[in-house]
Design a binder for these strands. Structure first.
Lengths: 244, 244
DNA sequence: CGAGTTGTTGAGTTGCGTCAACCGTTGTGG
DNA sequence: CCACAACGGTTGACGCAACTCAACAACTCG
């Protein structure tokens, strides 16, 4: 089924960080166990001290946590992402890591990952950069939540997910799968599920997207990105190597 | 004036990452230039490719950027922070870095920083962890912006800044200096300046804080943290070393 | 086929924004 | 040394984006 489960991760690291052949080989040889998750299953829970890092192989994960009465989602993870890479250095997980729809993850032991990074400074830099991408995305979410109202806010999230899925080859003709419910979107956007519903209808009415069931199609990418003030540039900032 | 400008940074790295004597020495010997900033001065601008990293020596910086019509602040930086450490790996700055009130920063060339990290895996880990702390704080902001309304949201920000200032010894008897205007707070919290004003008055009315001029005093820390659902734990998660 | 999700719609409410005026403080230049 | 401009803080009146509650429809799945 998955001859090389972390293929998407390696391809992205290759593209953005430029791996040497031996680094690539080290990654391909990483020992791992595959784990199949159903909708709502947890990869790890708040307070856990994971002994391995997950790589999303297929499907979506959400980072979430209860704030006052709401189940707040602070990140989505798509295939090729490592949602808990930071636990290498920050042992305690501060959120739940939950499967949105069915998904598959590969688990790589900290022990092995640490040893591999110790052998290669470029690999260390590549994985460090990987955590920095997550920071960039976090900052976009902060801006999005604080500064935009519902319509552009949802539009921005759609643009972001489309761009991230495109990088790992999961967008075909502007179409891609989003397994999250409107309730999940509400939890991510700081809106009520009712208002998310009405806002999506407005996006449909303007013929910017076609969104029925789990499939989304972006009909007018330029218009949608203009509404969202979205620029994919921030996801592509990582192509120049570190100063030495 | 500043015999060792990055003393606060070193002390924090020491406490959270446990530096060896030689790593400490390397940090103390870092070549740098001091830069004094007035209110509103920029350390660097969006789109810049800085050739050095800044360490906040005194005062506050804000990471900001214009979103639609608003000047959105996505992070505050206090003494001991390295606001653009990530430019080591992500060359282009995606926000402005602006002084809030007068401040001083030490600039350390990328070239030197890269060479130093190449010599020490533990130092690399310590600085990587430093960027991960920023991620943790970003996620707290996401939760704060999305899930809490104005009163607890502002309370949470006050708690966070108090905790971060406390770590670097800038809190005396619950009192500390916050140089930002209510407008700045509004830009950080996704609120209007008018509503920030009213919300602060409510915090004062409840006798949770005393906030006049630039000085803030937390009168009832427990009550304030309960209102904000704040726990300083997330800033302290970094004390266990990496697996090897 | 029923039971539990997820999506949709309507009506009434509210937290927060906007606009606009006013006040106190600070700093600056004549 | 005062006049005055500039800025940050404060207050009131009004409007709106988004929330809550509640019912219902569509879909999924055992």
């Amino acid at each position: 089924m998955h001859a090389m489960p972390h293929r998407k991760l390696i391809a992205r690291l290759q593209a953005f960080s430029g791996l040497a052949a031996e680094d690539r080989a080290r990654l391909e040889d990483m020992p791992h166990t595959l784990k199949v998750l159903a909708d709502g299953d947890y990869v790890a829970r708040q307070g856990d001290r994971p002994q391995s890092c997950a790589i999303v192989v297929s499907g979506f994960l959400a980072r979430q946590r209860v704030i006052s009465t709401r189940n707040q989602i602070s990140a989505f993870y798509v295939p090729g992402d490592m949602p808990d890479l930071h636990t290498l250095h920050v042992p305690v997980l501060d959120h739940d890591l939950c499967s949105i729809g069915p998904s598959t993850v590969a688990l790589v032991p900290h022990l092995y990952l640490g040893q591999t990074l110790a052998k290669s400074a470029t690999l260390t830099a590549a994985f460090w950069r990987e955590t920095l991408i997550q920071s960039v995305i976090h900052r976009e979410w902060i801006d999005n939540l604080a500064a935009r109202q519902a319509l552009p806010r949802l539009a921005h999230l759609v643009c972001e997910l489309a761009a991230r899925l495109d990088i790992v080859g999961l967008v075909k003709d502007g179409r891609f799968e989003l397994p999250m419910s409107q309730e999940d979107l509400a939890d991510a956007c700081g809106l009520s599920n009712v208002h998310v519903n009405r806002t999506i209808q407005e996006l449909r009415r303007r013929e910017l997207i076609d969104w029925s069931g789990r499939m989304v199609e972006v009909l007018q990418p330029d218009q949608l990105e203009r509404l969202a003030e979205f620029s994919a540039a921030y996801l592509q900032l990582l192509k120049t190597p570190v100063a030495r």
